[in-house]
């Protein structure tokens, strides 16, 4: 049964939205299907305030210290970090490939901007993912409406600013529909 939504505690600073933190790790040798992906998703917890966020954050392993094929997903409460979720199925994501060693800092910059509503695109942001891989790490930011070019450009500009990456960093946008079609998971 779904757990009750957390509320900010006394004296805490509420967030505009509640968020859930998820963790997943790919089992070696298994095929990546939507079902196995779903089964590997573990909910770490849901929080409603800045202080509750920091409590979770203090207890999790930093992305750069994770090993193997692992992901953190930070999504608005109620949105499952899957292409098929009704909040995501018309959406897409900005993808930034990071050299090894940058994941923890970039992930923190991204999620602080998201939690603090720095993207200024209303309800468009769904969540963020950091994917730890062997050669490089991948940051992605998911939004609801892939066809809304004005919003996706705005998200890209803010993302560039908050990540503070070199100007030649390549950013790609991919619709979830295309991801479903080519079945590309990282």
């Amino acid at each position: 049964p779904p757990r009750p939504s957390p509320k900010p505690g006394p004296g805490e600073h509420p967030l505009q939205f509640n968020y859930s933190l998820w963790f997943s790790r790919k089992s070696p040798g298994k095929h990546s299907t939507a079902t196995s992906y779903d089964q590997n998703l573990k909910l770490v917890g849901t929080f409603a305030s800045v202080e509750q966020f920091w409590k979770y954050y203090a207890h999790i392993v930093r992305p750069s210290d994770l090993t193997g094929h692992s992901d953190y997903h930070l999504f608005k409460e109620g949105i499952r970090p899957m292409w098929e979720d009704s909040a995501n199925n018309k959406g897409g994501k900005w993808i930034v490939r990071l050299k090894k060693g940058l994941a923890s800092r970039c992930w923190e910059n991204l999620i602080l901007a998201m939690l603090g509503e720095q993207f200024m695109v209303g309800e468009e942001i769904c969540g963020a993912v950091i994917s730890i891989r062997y050669q490089e790490d991948i940051l992605s930011l998911w939004n609801r409406t892939a066809s809304d070019q004005q919003t996706t450009s705005r998200i890209r500009d803010t993302l560039k600013r908050v990540l503070n990456l070199p100007p030649n960093t390549i950013m790609e946008y991919k619709t979830h529909n295309d991801s479903i079609k080519d079945n590309s998971s990282f």
Partner: peptide
Amino acid sequence: GTKIFYDRHFLLKCRNSPLTK
């Protein structure tokens, strides 16, 4: 509804507040 904005500096300040300990 009211938008709740926090900048990075403020969020980092909350990290060290007694409430998060």
